[in-house]
């Protein structure tokens, strides 16, 4: 088991394995996203209060879930790198940051677009919105530190450290902004409880969330593969690959 783990951690093996898996993932992600979008936009009944604007949810909720989850994955990669010094974990951390930033931004933008017709305003200083905004700042901080330290041997460990500090702070930030009066509805979608939405509404949402996860993994994998080639350009297997 450990042997296998370490083998996967070597850039060369990872490059080979991910290369053979990537097409399946991409096709699956494409199918899920297309099916989810068609289902959500074309067949889901409009909400009795919000009408057709409720369809924004099918982009907003998955991107918000992915935004938080990509920070968690980044933190997991950070722990792996700090403890075991597996080079691949550092690459994974570095590659997840821009995707996470993009998804957080998407969650904020779609939230604003959804907020205008339902709440009557683009932005409110509500707890969930604010903590998502802070998440965006944390992502930007990680990327800023990384780019300021580019070329230094300690860049990976410093960034991992920062991500860990951020992950410790996320719950504190979340609870502190909850002190404010909250306009955002509480999450109506969780793994453990029966959803309060009717099945014809939450099933396409589930498809979209899974599609977003697969999409995230595809983009992440692509970035990691590119970064591996970038860093290992001196090694023989990369040269042979390129020629």
């Amino acid at each position: 088991m450990w042997n296998w783990f370490h083998k996967l951690g070597s850039p060369k093996t990872f490059y080979a394995i991910s290369g053979s898996l990537l097409p399946y993932f991409c096709v699956l992600a494409g199918i899920m996203l297309v099916a989810g979008v068609v289902w959500a936009l074309g067949f889901v009944p409009p909400d009795y209060q919000q009408g057709h604007t409720v369809r924004i949810m099918y982009v907003h909720v998955p991107s918000a879930i992915l935004a938080q989850s990509s920070y968690m994955m980044m933190a997991a990669a950070g722990v792996v790198y700090l403890v075991w010094r597996i080079k691949l974990a550092d690459i994974a951390l570095q590659c997840a940051a821009p995707i996470g930033t993009g998804l957080t931004f998407l969650a904020l933008i779609t939230g604003a677009i959804w907020g205008k017709p339902t709440w009557g305003t683009w932005w409110v200083w509500d707890a969930r919105l604010t903590s998502t905004l802070v998440l965006l700042f944390l992502f930007v901080g990680v990327m800023a530190l990384r780019s300021a330290m580019s070329g230094k041997a300690s860049a990976g460990r410093a960034t991992a450290m920062l991500v860990l500090v951020g992950v410790m702070n996320l719950p504190i930030i979340k609870y502190s902004v909850d002190w404010w009066f909250t306009l955002h509805q509480p999450s109506s979608f969780s793994l453990t409880e029966k959803p309060s939405m009717p099945p014809e509404m939450w099933m396409p949402l589930l498809v979209m969330v899974l599609g977003f996860y697969l999409f995230f993994f595809c983009v992440w994998m692509l970035r990691i593969r590119t970064e591996i080639l970038n860093r290992e350009y001196r090694s023989r297997w990369v040269r042979e690959l390129v020629q």
Binding site: F137, V140, G141, L145, A148, N169
Partner: peptide, 15 residues
Amino acid sequence: LIAILVLPLYIPVLI
């Protein structure tokens, strides 16, 4: 850089 890294962490104290 310090400002970008640290200011988000100050938010709970500020609130």
